[in-house]
Nucleic acid binder design. Structure first.
Lengths: 222, 222
DNA sequence: ACCTGAACACCGTTCAAGT
DNA sequence: ACCTGAACACCGTTCAAGT
């Protein structure tokens, strides 16, 4: 009892900390607090805040760790499927499912370039699939970007409160109120919007791939 | 000179602060720092940090102020146009243009319910337009939510770095690299993705409105 | 190399004191 | 009612001291 009560100063014989453990603690803190601070993460690990700096580059480093962890959780298996549309929808669904499991990390990861090797590799597959589907090379990134933006927005939606729109007192919005009421019940609100959007994009990709479709050119008019 | 050098303690004869001025200062700080702190906002107004608390409810109150200001900047005029698709695309374009002008406020506003009267009123119009377009009442909010998510994602894209995907060393992603290179030049990358996505949604709405379209039901299969 | 404990600058919030 | 100045708890980051 007296032995483990306090860790004295100086390097311990066996390492107590590593990036893996820090990532797990940070994710846990975000999951139930909605955000994290370095002292909170350290406390959960039974360690001093300053100790974290031996493994990660401050707070930004911990965010980077969360980004990696999220990337690892995504299931890229669907991308090796047979048909391009099932492959894409399967991957994007798992992409969003990871955020659905950890909605409160989303706001922490929204502003930065994608560099995660696993994610980059997945997008490599996505590009190949789109080209196989018949999308013109110069249009590929436009489509990927649009879908990515949609998924990020849908992920943020998961972190948002249950009611996305609320008609305040004094404001008259009967049709909006009616539409809000007419929504199918259940917690599937965000799920339905996601599925609808994804199917919408897939349908457009099919249209772009049909030979002799005049709307192909329309995308380049502006 | 000696008169205005210091403001002594006690209530000034004429009010120096109001919500409007605070909103403007906060927006300016965010625009060029990427974030704001109360001391920064106060400094820009030549005032003590504590003074802000007489007009807004702390930091959260200033965020609320930014939300209001952004709502006011949106141009709802297109919503009174003749055809539903031009009305919707016009409004959503201005919606996103406001964020394009103030990209760094986006991350501050992403997690919360829409209550802004101006924005609620705009969505009331959007609902009416969608119903006029022939969308089933129970589908309206699904579509609105999907489009909203897409726009939020597209707005965040504006706050992100120029390169959204970067293939790191050691990772092999030739087709992604080629697709990135094949993008049309110019800063229109985000704009093109936004236009593509919006037109994609409008096309789907048209399809849903066509009488006797079997795909209508498909949306409710899951 | 890795952990501690103390230190520092900075932030958000509160509050008594002044007009 | 509205502003100041001081105070407090807390956060991110640095660093010398210890093994």
């Amino acid at each position: 009892m007296a032995r483990t009560e306090h860790r004295r100063a100086g390097r311990p014989r066996q390492t107590v900390l590593n990036r893996e453990r820090i990532a797990g603690a940070a994710l846990a803190v975000v999951d139930d607090r909605g955000d994290f601070t370095l002292p909170e993460v350290a406390r959960r690990l039974g360690v001093q805040t300053a100790s974290l700096y031996h493994h990660v580059d401050g707070r930004a480093g911990v965010v980077e760790l969360l980004r990696e962890r999220i990337g690892e959780l995504m299931d890229t298996a669907p991308l090796d499927g047979s048909s391009w549309d099932l492959a894409l929808s399967g991957y994007f669904r798992s992409y969003r499912a990871v955020f659905a499991a950890h909605p409160r990390v989303v706001p922490l990861l929204t502003t930065s370039t994608v560099t995660e090797p696993r994610v980059i590799a997945a997008y490599e597959r996505v590009v190949v699939l789109l080209e196989e589907a018949g999308v013109q090379r110069r249009d590929v990134m436009t489509i990927v970007t649009a879908m990515e933006n949609f998924i990020i927005g849908s992920a943020l939606d998961l972190a948002a409160p249950d009611v996305m729109w609320e008609v305040p007192e004094g404001v008259d919005a009967p049709r909006l109120a009616a539409a809000l009421t007419a929504q199918p019940a259940g917690d599937g609100r965000a799920d339905r919007a996601f599925e609808f959007g994804m199917q919408t994009f897939l349908a457009m990709i099919r249209r772009l791939s049909e030979p002799g479709d005049a709307s192909k050119e329309a995308q380049h008019r502006s």
